[in-house]
Amino acid sequence: MSNVKSITLPLTKEKLKDLKCGDRVSLSGVIYTARDAAHKNIVTDLVEGNEPPISLENQIVYYAGPTPPKPGKVIGSCGPTTSSRMDSYSPRLIEKGLTGMIGKGPRSKEVIDAMVEHSAVYFAAIGGAAALIADSVKSAEVVAYDDLGPEAIRKLEVEDYPCIVAIDSEGNNLYELGVEQYKVVD
């Protein structure tokens, strides 16, 4: 397994060129949680010509809706949700400068095409390892759509957030390459 690459955010297009499919990465800096309802709202803003509540330029969205924090904690359990539900929205965010997405599971061809065209990376975190992942979140603040509860957009300050480059900016895809290697054909 490759050595872990430490990345300080924001993720500029220059920095992400070095990230290759299968790299283990450790992210430090600001990321934003956004999932189904937040994506719908952001894309509605973009379609109507309004500015979304967060700037997308060189930013990373994390498909996550955490559990409420216990007293004295900054966040509850905070793992990734299934990314494919955001596939219909992601290309528009990528066109607006989004450079990274963190989630779990494969992505559609349309998303990968947009990633290659505009230069963006898809990181996979381990789904269901949410208690472990919470340790790397140092602060959390709701910055938009408070009424959506767990689906609100949260600004997270992370330190050494562990993930894997599942699809890189050239379209190399771990979900295809890995499965191909282990598929047994009788």
Binding site: M1, R24, A64, G65, P66, T67, K70, G76, S77, C78, G79, T81, I126, G127, G128, A129, A130, A131, L132, A134, P150, I164
Partner: peptide, 23 residues
Amino acid sequence: YSLEKIEKNIKVARDENVPMCQD
């Protein structure tokens, strides 16, 4: 790698009495 993290997460959740998954 995934299974190693998943195993560790089960123990952390149990020891700290927190949800193993946010869902």
